[in-house]
Design a protein around this nucleic acid. Structure first.
Lengths: 114, 114
DNA sequence: AGTGGACATCGACACCAGTCAATCTACTCC
DNA sequence: GGAGTAGATTGACTGGTGTCGATGTCCACT
């Protein structure tokens, strides 16, 4: 398993060559962009992302209470977000510290029509 | 059933008061944003949206071939996108003409962190 | 009025995604 | 080493979603 950030990127930090409204998307471009958007298209994950961003760094154990979700559920959502490249985790001691990947979110915005 | 664009908008054209990375989202904000993102999080709908944008206006019947989907499936996807406020349809004669709602996409970008 | 075409709706199917209890793994501290 | 804790993983359940054939509805044109 590992950090499967993305296999289908066209360019370095971009999700597609141009934006959705600029030119018809190819199927691979649409698939990859849809993958990242699907990671964002969940209320719990959006709140999780905004919680991480609000502190620049946060531990998994400090997410359960504000999200009102069980530990496996929180672990599931952090995994989805990190596999989408939106979150990066670093294990320090017993704790997992999460921070946002701002470039990735910027790439989504750009793909959605700069 | 009418154009249920959104019931939870905070401001006029915004999906949330500030962006995801600026402050923790409230649950209603997260729900509404997730709804729009879910409409975008499908490869077929992304390609559909980019097809409509590429011609500024397109008829439903001209979407089946490039998308390689059946007529009911195309109808389903246009419905999802229009209920999310991303597409607007106008029936002229026998044909349904679709165009994009650029403000709505801009609101999504803004919600994703200006 | 009747025919044909464009689109919406319905029903059914398969597949995927969110959730949590239970369990496993790995690390810290005594 | 042993106990306790943070987090990942597994398995099962449930609800939602993409897809299409069949059918319904509305419009245009003869």
């Amino acid at each position: 398993m590992g950090g499967t950030k993305t296999d289908l990127q066209c360019c370095a930090d971009d999700l597609c060559v141009s934006s959705v409204i600029d030119a018809p998307l190819s199927e691979p471009e649409a698939n990859e962009l849809a993958r990242v958007l699907a990671a964002l298209a969940d209320p719990v994950r959006l709140r999780l992302l905004s919680l991480v961003a609000s502190r620049t760094e946060i531990c998994s154990c400090d997410l359960e209470a504000p999200l009102a979700k069980s530990q496996p559920t929180v672990s599931h959502h952090t995994r989805v977000l990190s596999e989408a490249g939106l979150l990066v985790g670093e294990k320090r001691g017993r704790w997992m510290w999460w921070s946002v990947e701002p470039d990735r979110l910027a790439a989504v915005r750009k793909a959605l029509g700069a």
